[in-house]
Simulated scan of single mutants.
Amino acid sequence: MAQPYSGDTWKEVNKKSKGSVSLAYVQTPSFVYVDDAGKLTGICVDIMSDFVTWLKETKKVELTTKFVGDGSNFHGMYDNVKASKGGVFGLGNITITDERKKEVKFSQPFITNFAILITQGKVSTLNKLEDMPKNFAGLTAYAAKGTLNEKRILDLKSRYYPDMKIVNTTTSQETLEKLFADPKGFAYLDLAFYLEAVKMKKSIKRHPIADKAAEQFGFIMPMGSDWASVLDEFLKANGGYTNTAQYKNILVKHLGEAGMKLMQSASKQ
């Protein structure tokens, strides 16, 4: 059952020059995660923090933010934002799709994502998707229910590997953990999860033939929200937020130099 959140509308905040909004989130490596000090941080958190600063400087508005929900799974966060009213934002690895645009409001995209097909290191590299039944024989696919990566796995099954065995998980983090535990597992995961595995020095292999780099992430808001226009104004200001040095620094901070370069190569494709 969805649990709606609430926050002040932009109209109210603009009128009173102050107000507060709720930030729902799904924990995702690099995007929204808990740092060593136990504090929520990440690309999305830093961008929202810059948005609050920009509102103060350009609109003379004091905005306070509070995190809501437990961040445990994508579906919960998405459904709760969808059911909310007023100043509520959803943060995480949220792909902009036409289907979702009918249910929630999206901001301008703030990053282009790579979805990567990964296995443990000992699985032989896939050179052609048609070779899946042979190369991945006896392997099990893991996919978080309701995500775009589950759709990708189902697409591979229908097009190349009809006998594929699929096990559903509740979160992408759980998918990653299953992959670590199962030498015969494979999954589609967002770039950030792959970078996390590399950072943890896990025996993991990327199969570049299956890379998907066309999708973009955005922040979400309830359908009735009046915040989309002002958030987009911020993201478009000064030649575009994603072209600023500040934004680049955020990517390096949370993705590392190599991760930032991969992400930027994705956006050029």
Rank of each mutant, 00 (worst) to 15 (best):
S225N: 10
F193A: 08
K212M: 14
D8W: 08
K122M: 05
S22N: 07
G146M: 05
E12P: 00
I166A: 12
H75W: 04
G76A: 14
R206E: 09
S30E: 05
N127W: 08
M221G: 06
N14C: 12
E99S: 14
Y188G: 11
R100C: 01
D46Q: 13
H75T: 14
V32K: 02
I116Q: 09
F180R: 11
V21H: 01
F31G: 00
L191S: 04
V21A: 05
L40P: 03
Q246K: 12
G256T: 04
K268W: 01
T147I: 05
T242Q: 12
D211C: 10
T147E: 07
A237I: 00
E177L: 11
F74N: 11
D35N: 15
P183G: 03
K60N: 15
L63S: 08
M260H: 08
A214N: 10
T97D: 02
D70V: 04
N93S: 13
I118G: 07
M132D: 01
S158C: 00
K261V: 06
S20R: 07
Q264D: 09
G259R: 06
A37N: 15
W227M: 09
L251Y: 11
T170N: 14
A266H: 05
G185L: 04
Q264L: 15
G38A: 06
Y78G: 00
D163S: 15
F67K: 09
D46V: 04
E177A: 07
S30Q: 06
T9K: 05
G69K: 02
I166Q: 09
K59Y: 01
I96W: 01
M164A: 12
Y160T: 00
D46N: 10
E130C: 00
V45H: 03
P208Y: 01
G38Y: 07
L154R: 09
M1E: 09
E130Q: 11
I204D: 10
P4T: 07
V252T: 13
D35G: 08
W54I: 08
N80R: 01
Y188D: 11
